[in-house]
Design a binder for these strands. Sequence first.
DNA 1: GGATGATTTCGGTTTTTACCGAACCAACTG
DNA 2: CAGTTGGTTCGGTAAAAACCGAAATCATCC
Lengths: 178, 178
Amino acid sequence: MTDLTPAVQNFIVHWGEMGERWGINRTVAQIQALLYISPQPLNAEEISRTLSVARSTVSVGLHELQYWGIINVVHRLGDRTDYYELIGDVWEMFRLIADRRIQNELDPTVIMLQDAVNRLGDDSEETHTKKKLSELLDVLETASNIYTEFRKVPTKIIARIAKTGDIVGMILRLAREK
Amino acid sequence: MTDLTPAVQNFIVHWGEMGERWGINRTVAQIQALLYISPQPLNAEEISRTLSVARSTVSVGLHELQYWGIINVVHRLGDRTDYYELIGDVWEMFRLIADRRIQNELDPTVIMLQDAVNRLGDDSEETHTKKKLSELLDVLETASNIYTEFRKVPTKIIARIAKTGDIVGMILRLAREK
DNA sequence: GGATGATTTCGGTTTTTACCGAACCAACTG
DNA sequence: CAGTTGGTTCGGTAAAAACCGAAATCATCC
Protein backbone atom coordinates (compact mmCIF):
# COMPACT_ATOMS: atom_id res chain seq x y z
CA MET A 1 0.00 0.00 0.00
CA THR A 2 2.91 2.32 0.70
CA ASP A 3 4.07 2.23 -2.90
CA LEU A 4 0.85 3.94 -3.93
CA THR A 5 0.36 7.68 -4.08
CA PRO A 6 -1.68 9.18 -1.22
CA ALA A 7 -4.56 9.93 -3.58
CA VAL A 8 -4.73 6.33 -4.72
CA GLN A 9 -4.42 4.99 -1.19
CA ASN A 10 -7.21 7.22 -0.10
CA PHE A 11 -9.38 6.11 -2.96
CA ILE A 12 -8.86 2.42 -2.25
CA VAL A 13 -9.51 2.77 1.46
CA HIS A 14 -12.63 4.81 0.86
CA TRP A 15 -13.94 2.42 -1.75
CA GLY A 16 -13.46 -0.45 0.65
CA GLU A 17 -15.43 1.29 3.36
CA MET A 18 -18.26 2.15 1.03
CA GLY A 19 -18.35 -1.35 -0.33
CA GLU A 20 -18.80 -2.62 3.19
CA ARG A 21 -21.89 -0.53 3.67
CA TRP A 22 -23.41 -2.06 0.57
CA GLY A 23 -22.84 -5.51 1.95
CA ILE A 24 -19.69 -6.10 -0.08
CA ASN A 25 -16.60 -7.50 1.55
CA ARG A 26 -14.17 -4.69 2.21
CA THR A 27 -11.17 -6.49 0.79
CA VAL A 28 -13.05 -7.43 -2.35
CA ALA A 29 -13.99 -3.82 -2.86
CA GLN A 30 -10.37 -2.78 -2.32
CA ILE A 31 -9.17 -5.24 -4.91
CA GLN A 32 -11.72 -3.87 -7.30
CA ALA A 33 -10.56 -0.32 -6.63
CA LEU A 34 -6.93 -1.27 -7.06
CA LEU A 35 -7.57 -2.99 -10.35
CA TYR A 36 -9.60 -0.05 -11.50
CA ILE A 37 -6.89 2.47 -10.78
CA SER A 38 -4.00 0.35 -11.94
CA PRO A 39 -2.59 1.27 -15.35
CA GLN A 40 -1.78 -2.35 -16.09
CA PRO A 41 -3.16 -5.76 -15.10
CA LEU A 42 -1.94 -7.15 -11.79
CA ASN A 43 -1.35 -10.65 -10.51
CA ALA A 44 -2.48 -12.04 -7.19
CA GLU A 45 0.93 -11.64 -5.65
CA GLU A 46 1.13 -7.96 -6.49
CA ILE A 47 -2.36 -7.34 -5.15
CA SER A 48 -1.53 -9.24 -2.00
CA ARG A 49 1.59 -7.17 -1.36
CA THR A 50 0.03 -3.87 -2.29
CA LEU A 51 -3.00 -4.26 -0.06
CA SER A 52 -1.20 -6.23 2.67
CA VAL A 53 -3.61 -9.10 2.68
CA ALA A 54 -2.93 -12.80 2.48
CA ARG A 55 -2.71 -14.31 -0.94
CA SER A 56 -5.47 -16.74 -0.14
CA THR A 57 -7.74 -13.84 0.64
CA VAL A 58 -6.86 -12.25 -2.67
CA SER A 59 -7.63 -15.53 -4.35
CA VAL A 60 -11.18 -15.72 -3.03
CA GLY A 61 -11.66 -12.03 -3.64
CA LEU A 62 -10.71 -12.41 -7.27
CA HIS A 63 -13.13 -15.27 -7.62
CA GLU A 64 -15.85 -13.06 -6.22
CA LEU A 65 -15.07 -10.41 -8.80
CA GLN A 66 -15.02 -13.04 -11.49
CA TYR A 67 -18.40 -14.27 -10.34
CA TRP A 68 -19.72 -10.78 -10.91
CA GLY A 69 -18.15 -10.88 -14.33
CA ILE A 70 -16.28 -7.64 -13.92
CA ILE A 71 -12.68 -8.78 -14.34
CA ASN A 72 -10.75 -10.37 -17.14
CA VAL A 73 -7.79 -12.68 -16.81
CA VAL A 74 -4.92 -11.89 -19.13
CA HIS A 75 -1.62 -13.58 -19.74
CA ARG A 76 1.81 -12.48 -20.81
CA LEU A 77 3.97 -14.34 -23.24
CA GLY A 78 6.21 -16.77 -21.46
CA ASP A 79 4.60 -16.11 -18.07
CA ARG A 80 2.00 -18.44 -16.71
CA THR A 81 0.78 -16.33 -13.83
CA ASP A 82 -2.71 -14.92 -14.11
CA TYR A 83 -2.98 -11.17 -14.44
CA TYR A 84 -6.26 -9.48 -13.73
CA GLU A 85 -7.81 -6.34 -15.08
CA LEU A 86 -11.17 -4.71 -14.52
CA ILE A 87 -13.46 -4.55 -17.53
CA GLY A 88 -13.02 -1.30 -19.37
CA ASP A 89 -16.51 0.17 -19.33
CA VAL A 90 -17.42 1.52 -15.91
CA TRP A 91 -21.12 1.73 -16.70
CA GLU A 92 -21.07 -1.84 -17.80
CA MET A 93 -19.33 -2.82 -14.59
CA PHE A 94 -22.06 -1.31 -12.45
CA ARG A 95 -24.68 -2.97 -14.59
CA LEU A 96 -23.13 -6.37 -14.19
CA ILE A 97 -23.02 -5.89 -10.44
CA ALA A 98 -26.64 -4.76 -10.45
CA ASP A 99 -27.62 -7.78 -12.54
CA ARG A 100 -26.15 -10.14 -10.03
CA ARG A 101 -27.64 -8.41 -7.06
CA ILE A 102 -31.09 -8.40 -8.58
CA GLN A 103 -30.72 -12.02 -9.45
CA ASN A 104 -29.56 -12.99 -5.97
CA GLU A 105 -31.33 -10.52 -3.76
CA LEU A 106 -34.52 -9.49 -5.48
CA ASP A 107 -35.68 -12.36 -7.65
CA PRO A 108 -35.90 -14.81 -4.74
CA THR A 109 -38.13 -12.38 -2.90
CA VAL A 110 -40.40 -12.00 -5.89
CA ILE A 111 -40.68 -15.75 -6.17
CA MET A 112 -41.40 -16.11 -2.48
CA LEU A 113 -44.14 -13.50 -2.69
CA GLN A 114 -45.69 -15.02 -5.78
CA ASP A 115 -45.73 -18.33 -4.05
CA ALA A 116 -47.29 -16.91 -0.90
CA VAL A 117 -49.95 -15.02 -2.80
CA ASN A 118 -50.87 -18.12 -4.76
CA ARG A 119 -51.18 -20.24 -1.68
CA LEU A 120 -53.19 -17.81 0.41
CA GLY A 121 -56.94 -18.21 0.31
CA ASP A 122 -59.57 -15.53 0.67
CA ASP A 123 -60.87 -16.29 4.13
CA SER A 124 -61.05 -13.30 6.38
CA GLU A 125 -58.05 -14.45 8.35
CA GLU A 126 -55.70 -14.33 5.41
CA THR A 127 -57.24 -11.72 3.20
CA HIS A 128 -55.30 -8.89 4.74
CA THR A 129 -52.01 -10.74 4.47
CA LYS A 130 -52.73 -11.58 0.88
CA LYS A 131 -53.53 -7.98 0.07
CA LYS A 132 -50.34 -6.65 1.60
CA LEU A 133 -48.10 -9.25 0.04
CA SER A 134 -49.72 -8.66 -3.35
CA GLU A 135 -49.06 -4.98 -3.09
CA LEU A 136 -45.43 -5.53 -2.22
CA LEU A 137 -45.07 -8.07 -5.00
CA ASP A 138 -46.50 -5.59 -7.45
CA VAL A 139 -43.99 -2.92 -6.49
CA LEU A 140 -41.03 -5.26 -6.70
CA GLU A 141 -42.13 -6.69 -10.03
CA THR A 142 -42.61 -3.23 -11.43
CA ALA A 143 -39.21 -2.10 -10.21
CA SER A 144 -37.69 -5.20 -11.70
CA ASN A 145 -39.38 -4.45 -15.02
CA ILE A 146 -38.10 -0.91 -15.06
CA TYR A 147 -34.59 -2.19 -14.52
CA THR A 148 -34.94 -4.80 -17.23
CA GLU A 149 -36.15 -2.17 -19.67
CA PHE A 150 -33.32 0.19 -18.83
CA ARG A 151 -30.94 -2.69 -19.12
CA LYS A 152 -31.70 -2.88 -22.81
CA VAL A 153 -30.65 0.68 -23.51
CA PRO A 154 -26.96 1.08 -24.32
CA THR A 155 -25.08 2.78 -21.51
CA LYS A 156 -23.82 5.48 -23.79
CA ILE A 157 -27.31 6.63 -24.57
CA ILE A 158 -28.34 6.62 -20.93
CA ALA A 159 -25.31 8.66 -19.99
CA ARG A 160 -25.97 11.13 -22.77
CA ILE A 161 -29.61 11.62 -21.87
CA ALA A 162 -28.81 11.99 -18.22
CA LYS A 163 -26.47 14.84 -19.02
CA THR A 164 -28.52 16.71 -21.53
CA GLY A 165 -32.09 15.50 -21.28
CA ASP A 166 -35.02 16.63 -19.23
CA ILE A 167 -35.99 13.30 -17.78
CA VAL A 168 -38.84 14.58 -15.68
CA GLY A 169 -40.40 16.36 -18.61
CA MET A 170 -39.98 13.32 -20.75
CA ILE A 171 -41.66 11.05 -18.27
CA LEU A 172 -44.55 13.37 -17.66
CA ARG A 173 -45.03 13.74 -21.37
CA LEU A 174 -45.12 10.01 -21.78
CA ALA A 175 -47.56 9.67 -18.93
CA ARG A 176 -49.94 12.04 -20.65
CA GLU A 177 -49.69 10.26 -23.97
CA LYS A 178 -50.75 6.92 -22.66
CA MET B 1 -43.55 -15.61 16.19
CA THR B 2 -45.73 -18.64 16.75
CA ASP B 3 -48.89 -16.59 16.89
CA LEU B 4 -48.35 -15.66 13.26
CA THR B 5 -49.64 -17.64 10.32
CA PRO B 6 -47.03 -19.70 8.47
CA ALA B 7 -47.23 -17.41 5.45
CA VAL B 8 -46.48 -14.37 7.57
CA GLN B 9 -43.68 -16.11 9.45
CA ASN B 10 -42.13 -17.12 6.19
CA PHE B 11 -42.38 -13.61 4.84
CA ILE B 12 -40.73 -12.07 7.89
CA VAL B 13 -37.90 -14.56 7.96
CA HIS B 14 -37.25 -14.18 4.25
CA TRP B 15 -37.33 -10.41 4.43
CA GLY B 16 -34.82 -10.49 7.25
CA GLU B 17 -32.45 -12.64 5.26
CA MET B 18 -32.71 -10.45 2.19
CA GLY B 19 -32.22 -7.33 4.25
CA GLU B 20 -29.00 -8.80 5.55
CA ARG B 21 -27.65 -9.19 2.05
CA TRP B 22 -28.29 -5.52 1.39
CA GLY B 23 -26.30 -4.59 4.45
CA ILE B 24 -29.35 -4.10 6.65
CA ASN B 25 -29.51 -5.61 10.08
CA ARG B 26 -31.63 -8.72 10.00
CA THR B 27 -33.69 -7.84 13.03
CA VAL B 28 -34.37 -4.35 11.73
CA ALA B 29 -35.61 -5.84 8.49
CA GLN B 30 -37.81 -8.25 10.40
CA ILE B 31 -39.37 -5.45 12.39
CA GLN B 32 -40.02 -3.64 9.16
CA ALA B 33 -41.67 -6.71 7.67
CA LEU B 34 -43.78 -7.26 10.77
CA LEU B 35 -45.00 -3.69 10.81
CA TYR B 36 -45.73 -3.91 7.13
CA ILE B 37 -47.87 -7.00 7.44
CA SER B 38 -49.58 -6.03 10.67
CA PRO B 39 -53.16 -4.79 10.29
CA GLN B 40 -52.72 -2.40 13.19
CA PRO B 41 -49.85 -0.46 14.78
CA LEU B 42 -47.73 -2.37 17.27
CA ASN B 43 -45.81 -1.35 20.34
CA ALA B 44 -42.26 -2.35 21.22
CA GLU B 45 -43.42 -4.99 23.68
CA GLU B 46 -45.58 -6.72 21.10
CA ILE B 47 -42.80 -6.66 18.53
CA SER B 48 -40.36 -8.00 21.07
CA ARG B 49 -42.60 -10.92 21.95
CA THR B 50 -43.63 -11.68 18.40
CA LEU B 51 -40.10 -11.79 17.03
CA SER B 52 -38.52 -13.19 20.21
CA VAL B 53 -35.91 -10.48 20.48
CA ALA B 54 -34.99 -8.36 23.47
CA ARG B 55 -36.87 -5.15 23.96
CA SER B 56 -33.69 -3.17 23.84
CA THR B 57 -32.97 -4.59 20.44
CA VAL B 58 -36.42 -3.61 19.28
CA SER B 59 -35.82 -0.15 20.66
CA VAL B 60 -32.72 0.45 18.58
CA GLY B 61 -34.30 -1.19 15.59
CA LEU B 62 -37.24 1.16 15.74
CA HIS B 63 -34.88 4.10 15.96
CA GLU B 64 -33.16 2.88 12.85
CA LEU B 65 -36.47 2.71 11.01
CA GLN B 66 -37.31 6.16 12.28
CA TYR B 67 -34.01 7.43 11.01
CA TRP B 68 -35.00 6.22 7.58
CA GLY B 69 -38.28 8.02 8.00
CA ILE B 70 -40.40 5.02 7.16
CA ILE B 71 -42.39 4.57 10.37
CA ASN B 72 -44.85 6.74 12.22
CA VAL B 73 -45.47 6.77 15.93
CA VAL B 74 -49.12 6.79 16.90
CA HIS B 75 -50.80 7.02 20.27
CA ARG B 76 -54.05 5.85 21.73
CA LEU B 77 -56.15 7.92 24.04
CA GLY B 78 -55.18 7.32 27.64
CA ASP B 79 -52.24 5.13 26.71
CA ARG B 80 -48.73 6.51 26.74
CA THR B 81 -47.27 3.55 24.94
CA ASP B 82 -45.77 4.30 21.56
CA TYR B 83 -47.33 2.33 18.74
CA TYR B 84 -45.54 2.09 15.45
CA GLU B 85 -46.81 1.71 11.93
CA LEU B 86 -45.05 1.65 8.60
CA ILE B 87 -45.84 4.52 6.26
CA GLY B 88 -48.67 3.63 3.95
CA ASP B 89 -47.12 4.08 0.52
CA VAL B 90 -44.74 1.25 -0.32
CA TRP B 91 -43.16 3.13 -3.21
CA GLU B 92 -42.54 6.04 -0.95
CA MET B 93 -40.95 3.74 1.59
CA PHE B 94 -38.43 2.43 -0.90
CA ARG B 95 -37.69 5.93 -2.04
CA LEU B 96 -36.97 7.13 1.47
CA ILE B 97 -34.63 4.21 1.99
CA ALA B 98 -32.92 4.96 -1.30
CA ASP B 99 -32.59 8.61 -0.34
CA ARG B 100 -30.77 7.75 2.84
CA ARG B 101 -28.52 5.25 1.22
CA ILE B 102 -27.53 7.63 -1.49
CA GLN B 103 -26.90 10.31 1.06
CA ASN B 104 -24.80 8.04 3.25
CA GLU B 105 -23.19 5.72 0.79
CA LEU B 106 -22.89 7.54 -2.49
CA ASP B 107 -22.57 11.24 -1.79
CA PRO B 108 -19.44 10.83 0.37
CA THR B 109 -17.79 8.97 -2.47
CA VAL B 110 -18.67 11.69 -4.94
CA ILE B 111 -17.21 14.28 -2.61
CA MET B 112 -14.07 12.27 -2.10
CA LEU B 113 -13.60 11.88 -5.84
CA GLN B 114 -14.22 15.56 -6.53
CA ASP B 115 -11.69 16.40 -3.90
CA ALA B 116 -9.13 14.01 -5.30
CA VAL B 117 -9.59 15.20 -8.86
CA ASN B 118 -9.19 18.81 -7.76
CA ARG B 119 -6.01 18.11 -5.88
CA LEU B 120 -4.33 15.99 -8.51
CA GLY B 121 -1.97 17.76 -10.85
CA ASP B 122 -1.19 16.97 -14.44
CA ASP B 123 2.29 15.55 -14.10
CA SER B 124 2.78 12.27 -15.81
CA GLU B 125 2.79 10.41 -12.53
CA GLU B 126 -0.71 11.43 -11.60
CA THR B 127 -2.36 11.97 -14.93
CA HIS B 128 -3.56 8.41 -15.21
CA THR B 129 -4.99 8.44 -11.70
CA LYS B 130 -6.75 11.68 -12.39
CA LYS B 131 -8.23 10.36 -15.58
CA LYS B 132 -9.61 7.25 -13.96
CA LEU B 133 -11.01 9.02 -10.94
CA SER B 134 -12.63 11.62 -13.18
CA GLU B 135 -14.27 8.94 -15.22
CA LEU B 136 -15.65 7.24 -12.13
CA LEU B 137 -16.81 10.54 -10.72
CA ASP B 138 -18.62 11.29 -13.92
CA VAL B 139 -20.50 8.01 -13.81
CA LEU B 140 -21.50 8.40 -10.19
CA GLU B 141 -22.62 11.99 -10.67
CA THR B 142 -24.65 11.02 -13.68
CA ALA B 143 -26.27 8.15 -11.84
CA SER B 144 -27.02 10.47 -8.96
CA ASN B 145 -28.62 12.95 -11.35
CA ILE B 146 -30.79 10.30 -12.89
CA TYR B 147 -32.02 9.32 -9.46
CA THR B 148 -32.68 12.92 -8.49
CA GLU B 149 -34.69 13.45 -11.63
CA PHE B 150 -36.72 10.33 -11.12
CA ARG B 151 -37.22 11.34 -7.55
CA LYS B 152 -39.26 14.29 -8.73
CA VAL B 153 -41.77 12.18 -10.59
CA PRO B 154 -44.70 11.02 -8.46
CA THR B 155 -44.54 7.33 -7.73
CA LYS B 156 -47.97 6.73 -9.19
CA ILE B 157 -46.85 7.95 -12.57
CA ILE B 158 -43.71 5.86 -12.51
CA ALA B 159 -45.69 2.77 -11.62
CA ARG B 160 -48.18 3.42 -14.36
CA ILE B 161 -45.57 3.95 -17.04
CA ALA B 162 -43.67 0.89 -15.96
CA LYS B 163 -46.76 -1.23 -16.46
CA THR B 164 -47.99 0.15 -19.72
CA GLY B 165 -45.19 2.14 -21.33
CA ASP B 166 -42.47 1.20 -23.70
CA ILE B 167 -39.56 2.64 -21.79
CA VAL B 168 -36.89 1.53 -24.20
CA GLY B 169 -38.67 3.04 -27.15
CA MET B 170 -39.24 6.21 -25.24
CA ILE B 171 -35.61 6.56 -24.31
CA LEU B 172 -34.36 5.86 -27.78
CA ARG B 173 -36.81 8.36 -29.19
CA LEU B 174 -35.58 10.96 -26.76
CA ALA B 175 -31.99 10.18 -27.63
CA ARG B 176 -32.70 10.83 -31.27
CA GLU B 177 -34.47 14.10 -30.60
CA LYS B 178 -31.63 15.66 -28.70
C1' DG C 1 7.20 -38.40 -14.59
C1' DG C 2 9.18 -35.54 -11.13
C1' DA C 3 10.17 -30.63 -10.14
C1' DT C 4 8.70 -25.97 -10.02
C1' DG C 5 5.68 -22.35 -9.47
C1' DA C 6 0.91 -20.70 -9.25
C1' DT C 7 -3.48 -21.23 -7.22
C1' DT C 8 -6.97 -23.00 -4.14
C1' DT C 9 -8.81 -25.14 0.01
C1' DC C 10 -9.47 -25.32 4.74
C1' DG C 11 -8.93 -25.33 9.94
C1' DG C 12 -8.02 -22.19 13.38
C1' DT C 13 -7.84 -17.39 14.93
C1' DT C 14 -9.04 -12.64 14.94
C1' DT C 15 -12.14 -9.02 14.20
C1' DT C 16 -16.53 -7.28 13.74
C1' DT C 17 -21.32 -7.16 14.45
C1' DA C 18 -25.49 -8.22 16.76
C1' DC C 19 -27.81 -9.20 20.82
C1' DC C 20 -29.23 -9.62 25.59
C1' DG C 21 -30.51 -8.01 30.06
C1' DA C 22 -29.61 -5.13 33.86
C1' DA C 23 -29.41 -0.48 35.17
C1' DC C 24 -31.04 3.91 34.25
C1' DC C 25 -34.25 7.75 32.99
C1' DA C 26 -38.75 9.85 32.38
C1' DA C 27 -43.55 10.31 32.83
C1' DC C 28 -47.49 9.25 35.02
C1' DT C 29 -50.58 7.40 39.17
C1' DG C 30 -52.46 6.84 43.51
C1' DC D 1 -43.43 11.01 46.90
C1' DA D 2 -43.15 6.00 46.39
C1' DG D 3 -44.48 2.84 42.97
C1' DT D 4 -45.42 1.52 38.24
C1' DT D 5 -44.92 1.44 33.45
C1' DG D 6 -42.68 2.55 29.11
C1' DG D 7 -38.38 3.63 26.92
C1' DT D 8 -33.31 3.98 26.37
C1' DT D 9 -28.36 3.20 27.23
C1' DC D 10 -24.58 0.42 27.76
C1' DG D 11 -21.22 -3.28 29.22
C1' DG D 12 -20.54 -7.93 28.54
C1' DT D 13 -21.37 -12.03 25.70
C1' DA D 14 -22.54 -14.68 21.77
C1' DA D 15 -22.76 -15.20 16.86
C1' DA D 16 -21.06 -14.28 12.37
C1' DA D 17 -17.77 -12.78 9.04
C1' DA D 18 -13.29 -12.07 7.50
C1' DC D 19 -8.64 -13.32 7.39
C1' DC D 20 -4.29 -15.80 7.70
C1' DG D 21 -1.01 -19.34 6.65
C1' DA D 22 -0.01 -24.05 5.95
C1' DA D 23 -1.07 -27.84 3.28
C1' DA D 24 -3.02 -29.62 -0.82
C1' DT D 25 -4.01 -29.33 -5.58
C1' DC D 26 -3.25 -28.08 -10.21
C1' DA D 27 -0.73 -26.96 -14.34
C1' DT D 28 3.17 -26.58 -16.91
C1' DC D 29 7.80 -27.40 -18.09
C1' DC D 30 11.94 -29.98 -18.74
